[in-house]
């Protein structure tokens, strides 16, 4: 644990200003990820800028009928917000699949997007890790990689993004609102997180001086045919081996629109437009789902301990699409898989 300054941001502009002034600074929101990383010596911020007093805790309707979720809305409040439960049950379900009630009470919307990988080596400063120390090597590729990615990996990093909430946000085509020195911008969810490539130290395309202010959800919530299925090593409170968010619009037995996002398999929530468009117009039956799963996993590659994940992902995709099509979404309370 290092020594750091602690300051509080008075408003968003002040937060941006403080961040720009100190290249080693970090925002702290719920602290559920950052403080752990500091204690392990992985994050060594020169300054913590407390943003928890900023007015970013609201949830409002947008002009087009969507929702704007303030970056500081706690994960629990978001999950149980009546608008979310009713209109975006996929998001409700995905949030409840993550962490524990205590953590969700602390964790914020913005912080959830920026939580870092749970790769063992990233957390242990005695081992090489390109994400933690660029150029030091990736210990996971030839090491313990049971939890690691099967899609979009690079020879420099095979870590996964651990969030559940983000998988639903990706499926729902959310947008991320960020403010920096150059003003505010809106980032499509698919462009927010990035693949590791040869710079795995960067998880996202957010700029150093930018603060996330809100997430915007488009009006369409797929509240009828959806499901979030998370597969993990115990029945609750574990990171996903594979998670699938599926949302369908079905008309007369045919799929009008399909959204499919995967968690636990890549450096970012994984969306595959090609597989989705293949589902468009297809009958909402198992064969279509199998084809979609094969398509999503066409370039999947595993590293030994995680070989099983490819087949597991295939089955999970088919199962989740089936749940969505049948209108029997996975319950996060009852752990029996539907």
């Amino acid at each position: 644990m290092n020594n750091f300054e602690f300051s509080r941001a008075s408003d968003v502009a002040d937060a941006v200003r403080q961040m720009a002034a100190d290249p080693g600074a970090k925002f702290v929101a719920g602290g559920t990820n950052l403080i752990d990383l500091i204690k392990e010596g992985v994050a060594r911020p020169s300054r913590l800028i407390d943003i928890t007093r900023l007015p970013l805790g609201r949830l409002d309707e947008t002009g087009d009928g969507g929702l704007r979720i303030g970056a500081l809305v706690p994960n629990s409040d978001l999950a149980y917000h009546p608008q979310i439960e009713k209109r975006y049950p996929l998001l409700h379900s995905a949030i409840l699949a993550g962490a524990s009630p205590q953590l969700r009470n602390m964790a914020t919307t913005g912080g959830n997007l920026l939580q870092r990988t749970r790769c063992f080596y990233f957390y242990d400063t005695t081992t090489p890790c390109n994400k933690r120390e660029p150029g030091s090597g990736c210990s996971a590729i030839d090491g313990l990689n049971r939890m690691h990615a099967i899609l979009g990996t690079s020879e420099h990093c095979i870590a996964t993004h651990p969030s559940d909430m983000c998988v639903a946000l990706a499926a729902l085509d959310a947008r991320v609102l960020a403010t920096g020195r150059d003003g505010e911008r809106s980032i499509a969810f698919a462009d927010f997180h990035r693949l590791p490539g040869d710079t795995p130290q960067f998880d996202t395309n957010l700029k150093k001086d930018e603060i996330i202010t809100a997430i915007e959800l488009p009006p369409k919530g797929f509240a009828t045919n959806y499901s979030y299925l998370k597969i993990r090593d115990r029945l609750s409170y574990a990171f996903a081996l594979v998670a699938v968010a599926a949302a369908l619009e079905i008309e007369n037995g045919a799929i009008k629109e399909a959204r499919l996002a995967l968690g636990g398999v890549a450096h970012k929530p994984w969306r595959d437009r090609q597989a989705e468009s293949q589902l468009h117009g297809a009958p909402a039956i198992r064969e279509s789902f199998v084809r979609a799963a094969d398509n999503v996993l066409r370039d999947a590659r595993s590293f030994g301990h995680n070989d099983f994940k490819i087949e597991l992902a295939r089955r999970a995709i088919v199962r989740t699409l089936t749940q969505a099509a049948n209108g029997t979404p996975q319950s996060q309370g009852d752990k029996r898989i539907r």
């Binding site: 524990s100 749970r118 063992f120 080596y121 957390y123 242990d124 005695t126 081992t127 210990s139 030839d142 090491g143 313990l144 090593d233 115990r234 029945l235 609750s236 409170y237 574990a238 990171f239 752990k335």
Partner: peptide, 30 residues
Amino acid sequence: ALHEETLTDNRFGRFMTHNLADYHVPVNAD
């Protein structure tokens, strides 16, 4: 039976699952 295992990376001669997020014990749901 179902959860507990401390993983070793033999290249480093080191236990790698050294926190309660990575070292699983049963939770209420189990």
